[in-house]
Simulated scan of single mutants.
Amino acid sequence: MLYIVGLGPGDKSKMTQEAIDVIEKCPIIVGYATYMRLVKDMLDGKQIVSTGMRGEMERCEKAIELASDNQDVALISSGDAGIYGMAGLVMEMLAHKKQQLEVHVVPGVTASIAAAAQLGAPLMNDFCHISLSNLMTPWEVITKRVDAAAKADFVICLYNPRSKGRPNNLREALDIILKYKSPDTIVGYGKDVARPKEIEKITTIKDLDEEDINMTTIVIVGNKNTFVDDGRMVTPRGYTL
Results as ranks from 00 to 15, higher is better:
M1E: 03
L2R: 03
Y3K: 04
G6W: 03
G6R: 04
G8V: 05
P9G: 10
G10R: 02
K12G: 03
K12M: 06
M15V: 09
T16G: 11
T16F: 00
I20Q: 03
I20M: 15
V22L: 03
K25L: 11
C26L: 12
C26N: 02
Y32V: 08
T34E: 14
R37W: 01
V39Y: 01
K40H: 10
D44W: 14
K46E: 09
S50R: 04
T51L: 14
T51G: 08
G52Y: 09
G52S: 13
M53Q: 11
M57T: 09
E58Q: 11
R59C: 12
C60H: 07
A63E: 09
A63F: 13
L66A: 09
V73Q: 03
L75C: 09
L75E: 03
I76G: 09
I76L: 05
S77C: 11
D80A: 12
A81V: 10
G82D: 00
G82A: 06
Y84F: 15
L89D: 05
V90N: 02
V90L: 02
M91L: 15
E92M: 10
A95V: 08
H96N: 11
K98R: 13
K98M: 01
Q99I: 04
Q100G: 03
L101T: 01
H104A: 05
V106H: 06
P107L: 06
G108N: 07
A111P: 13
I113A: 05
I113P: 03
A114R: 03
A116D: 13
A117S: 15
A117G: 04
A117Y: 00
Q118S: 15
Q118F: 09
G120R: 06
P122G: 04
L123Y: 05
F127C: 13
H129Q: 13
L132C: 04
S133A: 12
S133H: 01
S133V: 05
N134D: 11
L135A: 14
P138S: 11
P138G: 08
W139G: 03
V146D: 01
V146R: 02
D147L: 08
K151T: 05
A152D: 09
D153I: 15
F154L: 11
I156E: 10
N160C: 12
P161E: 02
G165K: 14
R166F: 01
R171L: 02
L174Y: 01
D175P: 05
I176M: 05
I176L: 11
I176F: 00
L178K: 07
L178E: 07
K179R: 14
K179F: 01
Y180K: 06
Y180S: 01
K181H: 13
P183E: 06
T185G: 06
T185H: 09
I186P: 03
D192M: 08
D192P: 00
D192V: 04
A194E: 05
R195C: 08
P196A: 14
K197R: 14
E200F: 11
E200N: 15
I202E: 06
K206E: 10
D207L: 11
D209L: 03
D212A: 14
I213S: 09
N214L: 00
N214T: 02
T217Y: 14
T217Q: 09
T217S: 09
G222T: 04
N225Y: 08
T226D: 14
D229Q: 11
D229N: 07
V234R: 07
V234H: 12
T235L: 04
R237T: 12
Y239Q: 10
Y239W: 12
Y239R: 12
T240Q: 04
